[in-house]
Simulated assay, not measured.
Amino acid sequence: MADEIFENPRLAYIYDPFDPDRSDLDAYESMINEFGASSVLDIGCGTGTFACRLAAKGIEVIGLEPAEASLMVAKTKRWSDRVKWIHGNALDLPELKVDLVTMTANVAQVYLTDEELKATLLVIREVLLPGGRFVFETRKPESQAWLEWNKENTYQRVDVPKCGVVEGWVDVIDVRDSLVSFQWTYIFENDGAIITSISTLRFRSFKEISQTLREVGLSVEEVREAPDRPGREYVFITSRQ
């Protein structure tokens, strides 16, 4: 079950207005050009921003997302008719092969157990064409990004088209070992509705990630910095062993 922020129709609708700067996707788009990929599977595609960007360039794109409300938003976007949308997770994929698999933003960190992550990575390994790559990012635990996840640093008041003014912010509610839980709060001024959503991410170390990749038969070709968060994230470029 996807988190409320992605699954609740009201929250899915305001997701993009609250996060309009998607310059983090530029590096992924550049890598698709760099590696000459003509087909891409975007796991955890959310509201489809990246998938539609690629479709506009003539890339064959599959957008996989467990939250139906987010997919409904994705399907309203320009170029969405050129994307193959799949509602579900990696274990729900039909038989397919692609040049590149991506997990942008925090997607790789939503797998809280090693078993969940390994099951997904094994599927990714199987869908890669010879010479294909899997690219994903994950936050460095030592940077402790969650220390900035509070109302003071994250509060926004956004006038959303066809919705009205919405206030929103995030607060960390629990930090336990490598798991960080946080709650989003949104207040819809037009009717006074208050909707919250709790999420948990796992912050794995470089060593943990590298070992897990080896165990499922994925080789690390390179690890880069995320241009939008220099020094705070790993961007793994991997391929099938």
Rank of each mutant, 00 (worst) to 15 (best):
A2H: 08
P9C: 01
A12Y: 00
F18Q: 08
R22H: 13
S23I: 06
D24H: 10
M31D: 11
N33E: 15
F35A: 02
F35K: 07
V40N: 09
V40P: 06
D42W: 02
D42M: 06
C45H: 00
G46N: 08
G46D: 10
T47D: 12
T49I: 15
T49R: 13
C52G: 05
G58S: 12
V61R: 05
E65S: 11
E65K: 03
E65R: 08
A69C: 10
K77T: 07
S80T: 11
D81P: 03
G88F: 04
D92M: 02
P94G: 10
L96K: 04
D99W: 06
N106W: 11
V110G: 04
Y111G: 04
L112A: 12
L112P: 08
L112Q: 08
T113Y: 01
V123L: 02
V123P: 03
I124V: 15
E126P: 04
L129N: 14
G131K: 06
V135H: 03
E137G: 15
E137W: 08
P141Y: 05
E142G: 03
A145W: 12
W146Y: 11
K151R: 15
K151C: 10
V160H: 12
C163W: 00
C163F: 00
V166F: 00
L179M: 10
S181M: 07
S181T: 11
I187C: 07
D191R: 04
I194F: 00
I194V: 15
I195D: 02
T200K: 02
K207Q: 13
E225D: 15
P227T: 07
D228M: 14
G231E: 13
E233Q: 11
E233V: 10
F236E: 06
I237R: 02
R240P: 05
Q241P: 15
